[in-house]
Amino acid sequence: MSKLIVNNLSCQKGYNLVFENLSFEVNSGEVLKVSGANGSGKTSLLRIIAGLSSFESGEIDYDSFNLKSEQYKLDLLYLGHLASLSPELSCLENLKYSSLLGKNSLKNDYSKALKQVGLEKYENDLVGTLSAGQKKRIALSLLFITQSKVWLLDEPFSALDSKAITIIESKIEEHCINGGLCILTTHQECNIKNLKEIRL
């Protein structure tokens, strides 16, 4: 059973203290929703847990591995504000490269993943020609092929319609049932089981 523990974490940007002494833990099977006003440090928190940003003080442990360990990186899936897609590549090409960077298998399931998010017709279309919502869907289609246990999702529901939100919520629930854990930030209401919430 995996566990992510954040202990007395403090983050400072320039002279501004974004948050301090933040502690929580997320066990496998749980979803943690991080909420708060704009600028309260939700994205900063996810970037710190992803190992992209440094922090002032505190500790973060994942099954006694630190953030720079190979095992943690293998178990991590981070989807940030930016969709991490190249406009010159097709949906399929983008998905293949993204999955290569992370811990993914099921090599022939790219088309299936795109079908899950309703983009099977756009497989070979260049991402630059798609709308913001469609780009978000492609980024989220990675959830259907990843084997990573720790999902960090920054505003996963932004730019999505209600149908797509339901699909993603179901996928997050399925991930937790299979022993994964998820931390997400959102301003929207979530209909996800085993949801814990912290407010920054």
């Binding site: 992803a50 190992g51 992209l52 981070y78 930016l82 991490s84 190249s86 993204s98 960077l101």
Partner: peptide, 11 residues
Amino acid sequence: NGVLEQMIISH
């Protein structure tokens, strides 16, 4: 477009 971030956190 955010791909560099994914490269940094990649294993």
